[in-house]
């Protein structure tokens, strides 16, 4: 259950951005979460709602995109999506590969409301 500490990092980054842009509040957060990243997005959403109380992010939407796992076979370099906890290459059967995608935990976008219009040049 490390979701709360992760949410605090997200909140800090979003608040830093909101302050830098002079925004009134943060209205939305979008994450990329890898399928093999051991976090529970639903728990993060719940933790975000709790941790954002009284901050400029209170009431912000919290969404995520799941990034499917992709493994590159060490033997024949086939790129495949593992169907279970075993990474067995569909082309050659090799059990060793390296993860190319699916381990992400990335803050993709922050949506800000009440950003002052850029000063006319």
């Amino acid at each position: 259950m490390h979701e709360l500490s992760l949410v605090k990092s997200i909140l800090e980054e979003a608040v830093r951005l909101a302050e830098a842009e002079g925004a009134e509040r943060i209205s939305g957060i979008v994450l990329q979460v890898g399928a093999l990243r051991q976090v529970v997005p639903e728990l993060m959403k719940f933790a975000f709602e709790a941790a954002s109380q009284g901050t400029p992010a209170e009431g912000a939407s919290f969404e995520w995109k799941v990034v499917p796992a992709l493994v590159l076979c060490d033997n024949c370099e086939t790129l495949y999506s593992p169907s279970s906890w075993v990474w067995d290459c569909p082309a050659c059967g090799m059990l060793k590969g390296s993860l190319q995608a699916g381990d992400e935990l990335v803050l993709e976008t922050v949506e800000l409301a009440g950003v002052p219009a850029e000063a006319p040049r």
């Binding site: 951005l17 939305g28 994450l31 990335v106 993709e108 922050v110 950003v115």
Partner: peptide, 12 residues
């Protein structure tokens, strides 16, 4: 207004 951040959550 949307801002693309694309930053690892565990950057720190």
């Amino acid at each position: 207004m949307k801002f693309n951040v694309v930053q690892k959550v565990m950057k720190v």
